[in-house]
Amino acid sequence: MKKINFSFIMSVLFVILLIFISVLYPLILPFDPIHYYDLHYVNTGPSKLHWFGLDDLGRDIFSRILYGTHITLLISIISVIIGATIGSFLGLLTGYYQNYFDILIMNICDILLRLPNLFLALILSVFIKNGILNLIFAISITNIPIFVRITRSNTLIIKNQDFITASRNIGSSNIKIIFYQILPFIINSIIIYSSMRIGISIIAVSSLSFLGFGIQPPTPEWGLMIYESRYDLLFSPHLIIFPGLAIFITYLSFNTISDKIKYFLNLNKRY
Rank of each mutant, 00 (worst) to 15 (best):
I192G: 05
L112F: 13
L39C: 00
R64Y: 07
F137W: 01
I226V: 12
I175S: 08
G244Y: 07
V15Q: 11
H40I: 05
V80C: 04
V42M: 14
I61H: 01
S209V: 07
I164M: 11
L115F: 03
I128F: 12
I111T: 00
D259E: 07
F31W: 05
D60P: 06
V23I: 15
Y100K: 06
G214S: 06
I128W: 12
L233T: 09
K159P: 13
I198P: 10
N160W: 02
M106Q: 15
D162F: 05
L66T: 03
F14H: 04
F179D: 05
L267I: 15
I182C: 08
F242Y: 12
K176H: 11
F185S: 13
I141C: 08
N174F: 09
K2Q: 14
S47H: 09
I136H: 09
L120C: 10
I75N: 09
I241H: 01
L92T: 09
L133H: 14
F119W: 10
N188K: 15
I123V: 11
I247A: 01
T165C: 05
N130I: 02
P237A: 14
L104M: 02
F147I: 10
L24M: 11
L18Q: 00
A121K: 13
I61D: 00
S47Q: 14
I190K: 13
Y96V: 14
I203G: 03
S79D: 04
A204T: 13
S195G: 13
N117H: 09
F8T: 15
S47M: 13
N99W: 00
F6T: 00
G95D: 04
L93D: 04
F52M: 15
G95E: 07
R64L: 08
M196I: 12
I249G: 01
L90K: 02
Y231Q: 09
G58T: 11
N255T: 06
I103Y: 09
V12K: 00
Q216H: 08
D110R: 12
